[in-house]
């Protein structure tokens, strides 16, 4: 038993389970492990080195590489659920502007209509409208 209470058996169990790097051992036991190492450094180093050899062998087995295009395929699967919302967000100010523009236009038309009777409907005006509607001037038809 070491002064901190960690037995050599426990130290070896941890090395066997979590490997030769004490930084990867459970948080709650690292302090006691450090004290055990200080108390019996040669023995502790031998236990850690043995576990470390297996760690190194494990590290030789690398992960598979992603095939070309895998990331793009995954990204393509991602939905864009807020795209409609974003368009709405973009359109909101535009809609407001359009509303104001429409209101202005309506006001102008109404104003024009209200003011029309003040303008005398002379023959020339009626003739011009008639010509626009038919596409031909009365003089040309005559």
């Amino acid at each position: 038993m070491t002064p901190d209470g960690m037995t050599p058996e426990r130290f070896e169990t941890l090395a066997e389970a979590y490997g030769g790097d004490v930084a990867r051992w459970p948080d709650a036991e690292r302090e006691a492990a450090a004290q055990a190492m200080a108390a019996r450094p040669a023995w502790a180093q031998a236990a850690l080195a043995r576990a470390g050899d297996l760690d190194a062998a494990l590290d030789a087995y690398g992960p598979p590489r992603a095939a070309a295009g895998l990331m793009d395929r995954i990204v393509a699967d991602a939905p864009t659920p807020r795209r409609a919302w974003r368009w709405t967000g973009w359109l909101a100010p535009a809609g407001l502007g359009a509303g104001l523009a429409a209101a202005c236009a309506a006001g102008m038309i109404l104003g024009a209509r209200l003011s029309t009777p003040a303008i005398p409907e002379t023959d020339s005006v009626v003739t011009a409208v008639t010509a626009d509607d038919t596409g031909a001037y009365p003089d040309e038809e005559a």
């Binding site: 990331m71 995954i74 990204v75 939905p79 864009t80 659920p81 807020r82």
Partner: peptide, 13 residues
């Protein structure tokens, strides 16, 4: 990602 941010989607992947 939940808002559909394309840059976040790529970053998470």
């Amino acid at each position: 990602v939940a808002t559909g941010d394309p840059a976040a989607v790529r970053a998470l992947v």
